[in-house]
Amino acid sequence: MLSIKNLRVSIEGKEILGGINLEVKAGEIHAIMGPNGSGKSTLASVLAGNNLVEVIEGEVLYMGKDLLKILPEERSRQGIFLGFQYPIEIPGVSMVNFLKTALNEHRKYNGLEPLSASDFLKVMREKKALVEIASSLTNRSVNEGFSGGEKKRNEIFQMAMLEPKLAILDETDSGLDIDALKVVANGVNKLKTKENATIVITHYQRLLNYIIPDYVHVLYDGKIVKTGGKELAIELEEKGYEWISKELAINSSPAIL
């Protein structure tokens, strides 16, 4: 589904990702872990098409297509979803109008008729129940006055509405208390099928107790330095990221004798 080859990107002239390789297949859950500043969010941004991120070199294929040439809105319509680390407040744009426009753009792309107002509200009701989001929130402007946790829950709600093929969840667990974390994780698990894939970007192992990854990648200083199964996350949690840096230092430093 997604194939990243030797991806190097910079932000404002500073190289953030220094050659990423990653293969994601349908039905898989990948976790990307790493300390602050390792480039996790930059990876999410480049996949979603944020133009602040500049690609220096490399290739990203999504369903066989050159993803980097596709506009952000097209990426979304083709099934890519980015759950934002910091969801944006848009005063004056109602959640209903926002989601209806988005959903109908997706439908149009797939050659479907736009949903009627009543059908749309029906879909919205179903998905709201799935992620346990209150109507008091969905009746407001997009993210306006939402708490940190509410914003994250709203991201999962939007994901439920748009039913992406590839979901990239950028630190969706940060700022969540344990109950909210369970709801969010539960939402992700319910939306999981054999046809879609999820990339979970997280700093902590905690979320991975609820969303069980098939692969765990450690992003360090702009590179994936370690890949393993779900047990790698537990090891990281125990030993901390320093363990990785030490291990790297040992591996890379020439033997002195």
Binding site: N50, E73, V93, A102
Partner: peptide
């Protein structure tokens, strides 16, 4: 930022701009 957020949900740039102006 709001424009990108909307585009990341599949809303075309022109439509997103219109929605933001309208909201304003």
């Amino acid at each position: 930022d709001a424009l990108f957020y909307m585009r990341a949900r599949g809303i075309g740039e022109r439509e997103a701009r219109l929605m933001l102006m309208y909201a304003f």
